[in-house]
Write a protein that binds this DNA or RNA. Structure first.
Length: 736
DNA sequence: ATTAGGCGATTTTTT
DNA sequence: ATCGCCTAAT
């Protein structure tokens, strides 16, 4: 295999196969290419593919890398173990589950599931969720687990009341998961460590197995991940980590930059190779990124350079408000597509928070620009999807009490709190899982007839499908189950737009199951559930679709686009307000901005809005300090020539004035009076006497409008249900 | 005892 | 958008 098209450092990184290696790879320095060739090279010199373990940040990255390697060195290289930490070790845990007291069909709890468990524990312990925020407790527990702290260690260290309560919840939480035969995301890293440390034979097996280990995006690994790879790598020390401290953006999730320092301590013979030549960006873009990141102290010194031409200046778009920002960007997209002869798929719009996507989407939709959005409200988080998944989970893992509780009374079977408590008490007394307790529900004393009936129906359903599970395909089973519980019929009958969308989501889930089992031979429901739990937003990104891509700066990591818009460069947004207090967090925000900048190949835009609607409130924003940190000579300012400052009119402007003709809308620049009371895309154009459509109540007529900003309300006379007083912020009315 | 419906609070980023 | 908490209806 010829490496002649790689530069000297890249070649060295590919060829240094023995011993510990750290590749410090600046953005656009051909990191992925190096990893790909390195693995291909290993196979080329006779290392069997199954002896290679490569850990990536997303499954998508793994799949792409794998296909390229297969192209380079052929089909047998499919045997490489490659994927995210979570998916690779989930697989290993299934094989070894019994050794740590689990069953191989364990459930994986996502963050939402975990939150549910925590809330449930709080209420059963009589701890006030008002006083002790379940989100905060979840994050404390997760942090503790990331730091490899056991419950006992955490309890000992807990000082204040909050930590003491957390320790109590933590203890119960761990027991609960164990009892449910379930693991959370952190367990997928911790349990393998536990397995390896407690079981020398198993450890040796995997150390022999994975003789060559590669870790991508090393700067974003947490302590548990570090410890885990150390267990595997410490014997042969053929470990290569690739990363860039300047692109570390997951400290909030436990990523720990200490890993980079510890690596050199734990593997003293580490060879360090720097990839400093950038092949992606123009000189201007690279220089801007470099100037920005220099404001962070303690970065590993790097001299990034490029042979690429200087290219265009970076354009800063000064926008009146978030809506103007969207419109301006659309205009600029058209301009750049023409100028650079590009497709829509070459353009990405990035933002700090998911909620910013809405005003951007509005503008794109209004101008008929196709777009795809990465993440957002995720499919697998939709209520109806989670409900069906819970049914499947309880079938796969009978001990999964939380999955059972989720759907025990869905659809309604007359089973309320009291009935559930009786069931739980009975299960507790007899040390049974809830599913097993249900089988004996006749023995539970003091149940109403309705509850008795409900338990019986649900239990019969469960037993029927449990028996079917090994006999029919995953696809047949889920379809039949969904039919039997009748939710599709219910959604159809309800007939509202919302119910219809739920109907579609359930159908889509069923298709996803068919598709998955068709694509993955020998896999069934259990495998599907694992896959569904561990998919990342970007995993679903289809680059071939010709559409503008919208995503968070976090999701953008590892990607590149000819034209990039980074939006919302405002104090309090980028950097995000909550992050401006602690320097550490401010530095992370800066790195996040750095990641965004370095995604751009040819042309970069920054935008900010002087007025932005956040949480329904109008706020005056000032431009981000990060813009100040980029030298003026790299930047051209554009957008509004004159800043007129305050809104020219109050939010009480009569609604009729706010109706702008389509013509005005598409040239939404300096002259047109903007809409200051936003609320909803549609919200600002509401007017007394207008006919509207609501997703649940159907058609109606507006009788009155009151309030402003966040609390803008309308009294609407609906054809179906009569008068309602609705908050426009949530009503999502369509004008007719 | 259970359900339906209203109201307010919650959304930073995510494997 | 969804969840928890409350009240009223059944």
């Amino acid at each position: 295999m010829s490496l002649s098209h790689l530069n000297a450092q890249q070649q060295e990184a590919v060829r240094s196969v023995e011993g510990p290696l750290m590749v410090v790879a600046g953005p656009g320095s051909g990191k992925t290419r190096v990893m790909t060739y390195r693995i291909a090279h290993l196979i080329g010199i006779g290392v069997p593919a199954y002896r290679i373990l490569a850990l990536t940040f997303t499954n998508k990255a793994a799949n792409e890398m794998k296909s390229r390697i297969v192209q380079l060195v052929g089909e047998p290289s499919r045997q490489i173990r490659m994927g995210t930490f979570h998916s690779v070790f989930a697989r290993i845990l299934r094989t070894e589950a019994e050794k740590i007291g689990y069953q191989r069909n364990f459930s994986i709890y996502d963050e939402t599931d975990v939150l549910g468990v925590i809330k449930d524990i709080l209420s059963s312990f009589g701890i006030s969720a008002q006083q002790f925020n379940p989100y905060a407790i979840r994050s404390r527990i997760s942090n503790a687990k990331n730091q490899l702290l056991s419950v006992d260690e955490y309890a000992q260290k807990s000082l204040d009341l909050f930590e003491q309560k957390t320790a109590i919840v933590f203890r119960e939480y761990q027991q609960r998961l164990k009892r449910n035969n379930a693991m959370d995301f952190d367990d997928l890293l911790l349990k393998p460590i536990e397995l390896f440390r407690g079981n020398t034979k198993v450890l040796e097996k995997y150390q022999e197995y994975f003789r060559f280990i590669l870790v991508d995006e090393f700067q974003d690994t947490n302590r548990a991940q570090y410890a885990l790879i150390h267990e595997l790598a410490c014997r042969y020390k053929n470990i290569c980590v690739v990363g860039d401290d300047a692109q570390s953006i997951y400290a909030f999730r436990g990523a720990d930059i200490r890993n980079i320092l510890d690596f050199q301590r734990d593997y003293p013979e580490t060879k360090i190779i720097r990839l400093e030549q950038n092949y992606r960006c123009t000189g201007t873009i690279l220089s801007a990124a470099d100037h920005l990141i220099k404001h962070n102290p303690d970065q590993i010194a790097k001299d990034l350079w490029t042979q690429n031409p200087g290219g265009d200046l970076i354009t800063v778009l000064d926008c009146r408000d978030d809506r103007d920002e969207g419109e301006t960007i659309v205009t600029r997209i058209f301009e750049q597509l023409q100028r650079l002869k590009l497709d829509l798929k070459d353009v990405a719009i990035m933002y700090r928070t998911n909620s910013q996507s809405r005003s951007l989407e509005d503008a794109l939709r209004k101008n008929s620009v196709p777009y795809t959005i990465v993440g957002g409200v995720e499919f697998y988080q939709r209520k109806e999807v989670k409900d069906v998944l819970a049914y499947l989970r309880i079938l796969v893992n009978r001990q999964d009490n939380d999955a059972l509780l989720r759907v025990l009374n869905y659809p309604a079977r007359g089973l309320g709190d009291v009935a559930v408590s009786r069931l739980e008490a009975f299960a507790g007394e007899h040390s049974l899982s809830l599913a097993d307790a249900l089988v004996r529900s006749k023995e539970i004393a003091g149940l109403s007839k309705k509850a008795r009936e409900g338990f019986h129906v649900f239990s019969a359903l469960l037993e029927k499908y449990s028996a079917l599970l090994p006999k029919i395909t995953a696809s047949e089973l889920s379809r039949s189950l969904v039919d039997e519980i009748g939710i599709l019929r219910n959604f159809k009958e309800e007939g509202t737009t919302e119910a219809l969308s739920r109907w579609e989501n359930v159908q889509e889930l069923l298709s996803a199951i068919s598709e998955f089992t068709a694509d993955h031979e020998g896999s069934g429901l259990a495998e599907f559930l694992e896959d569904a739990a561990l998919v990342a937003a970007v995993d679903d990104l289809d680059e071939n679709r010709n559409a503008v891509t919208l995503m968070t700066l976090h999701s953008a990591k590892g990607l590149e686009y000819p034209v990039v818009f980074i939006t919302g460069l405002e104090e309090g947004l980028l950097p995000l307000y909550t992050s401006m207090i602690e320097t550490k967090e401010l530095e992370e925000e800066r790195r996040l901005c750095y990641v965004g900048i370095t995604r751009a190949m040819k042309k970069l835009f920054f935008s900010y809005a002087r007025i932005r609607y956040r949480f329904g409130e109008m706020t005056y924003q000032s431009s981000s300090r990060f813009l100040e940190e980029i030298p003026d000579e790299l930047v051209e300012k554009s957008g509004r020539q004159r800043y007129t400052g305050l809104p020219e009119r109050s939010v009480h402007t009569p609604a009729w004035r706010r109706r702008s003709s389509p013509d005005e809308d598409s040239h939404y620049h300096s002259d047109v009076v903007p809409d200051y009371d936003h609320g909803d895309e549609e919200g600002e154009r509401m007017n007394v006497g207008m006919h509207v459509e609501h997703s649940v109540f159907g058609r109606g007529k507006i009788l009155a409008i009151s309030g402003q900003g966040e609390s803008l309300k309308a009294v609407i006379d609906f054809d179906s249900v009569g008068r309602k007083n609705l908050l426009l912020k949530y009503a999502h009315l369509k004008t007719l």
